[in-house]
Design a protein around this nucleic acid. Structure first.
Lengths: 208, 208
DNA sequence: AATTCCAGAGAACAGTTGTTAACTGCATGG
DNA sequence: CCATGCAGTTAACAACTGTTCTCTGGAATT
């Protein structure tokens, strides 16, 4: 299906990616609603008008960034949530994977945390869409777990939402601790692990 | 101690409050990092330069807004967390109070949710300061609760953090559902209630 | 080889921004 | 009652913004 696309389209995608990368960099110290299109093109080294060949507006670019940041994350979610082992092992593995992802993609994580409640509606909606999809992934996995036997649909979804939010919160804390000494990051990991453990305990006794 | 302040200072505070109110209104559809000082003064109807009589910058104004939005919330936190009754009653009362606060101060809640991870460092720090204080309030209350007997300090704080984050998350969901039909708001309340109930169950079995 | 297409450049536009300086008028304290 | 203080005004600045129209060089198509 995927053509080896011509020089023309290849160069275009290269510029497009450069715009996305430059924007992501600029967004480390400001919000999307204050990101100017000229600012982005200047950082890339192209004319301001070239921007329009790729995006209608900076809001449009923001939506593309959501796709880039979250679209490819579903496999990781499923890996976390459907891994084997007992509860504690799975929690530690999950926290480790989150820490690793924040360390390798800090700008993406920051962008999502920032714009999830940010000032640009279309971007907020795009993020909530993806997060709802995450929650559905989690819910599907929970359904298969023997611990969830006898749970109704609403409760499975409410637990899935809780997990997703907990995941984002933990990611945000890791982000804040990125430049701090490793001791601080270990503390964050410890707190996150215990919070998930407490939720896990609540889960086991839910039907009592 | 509080002088009945002269006409001079009274008028000044009035203008200052007008600036804060106008800014809060403008911030419903954008982030602080894109809020211009001229925009604010225009909305109030004063000269741009008058802004400097009250704030060094819009970031400075943002910090003042954090104070306004969260500073007066400690009493409510303590009310929620140290109320009597069994676990379920307290949870329902807490969710009700959150819903009520979001309904009466939507702009403040939106501001905090938005700028908690927003693009202006000083404001982010101010918010995290206040939230840390909330967590401490909660922790103090938890310490007095018989359910927490035998808990160590770290675990009390991690639970308090979990509660505070859960509170903010719930507030944000109520905010999104503000313009929606009441059915949607009841659904949010129900999910939030069950999530807190699950946490509560985890709490009771923590030391098993 | 001739033609079409189109990513990016260039110039110009009307508006906007933060910040400065010097001012005015009125409440305040001596 | 007069001198001082100070909240708010006016005018001007250089720099910046998004958007438009026109143009160009080279890849893609025929």
């Amino acid at each position: 299906m995927s053509h080896t696309l011509g020089l023309r389209q290849a160069q275009k995608q290269k510029t497009r990616q450069a715009l996305l990368d430059a924007a992501l960099g600029l967004l480390e110290e400001q919000s999307l609603s204050s990101l100017g299109l000229r600012e982005v093109t200047r950082a890339v080294g192209v004319a301001p008008t070239a921007f329009y060949r790729h995006f209608r507006s900076t809001a449009d670019l923001g939506v593309a960034l959501v796709e880039e940041a979250l679209g490819s994350l579903h496999p990781m979610i499923r890996t976390i949530v459907s891994s084997s082992g007992d509860s504690d092992q799975r929690i530690e593995r999950a926290v480790g994977l989150i820490a690793q992802h924040v360390a390798t993609h800090p700008a993406h994580v920051r962008f999502i945390a920032r714009e999830r409640h940010g000032g640009v509606q279309s971007v907020r909606e795009a993020i909530q869409d993806q997060l709802a999809r995450f929650a559905d992934d989690v819910k599907v996995a929970l359904t298969k777990d023997p611990v969830s036997e006898g749970w109704n649909d609403d409760d499975l979804l409410m637990l899935a939402d809780l997990y997703v939010d907990q995941m984002l919160m933990t990611a945000s804390l890791f982000l804040d601790a990125l430049e701090a000494p490793e001791e601080e990051r270990r503390r964050v990991a410890q707190v996150a692990t215990r919070q998930m453990r407490l939720i896990s305990i609540g889960r086991e006794h839910w039907l009592d």
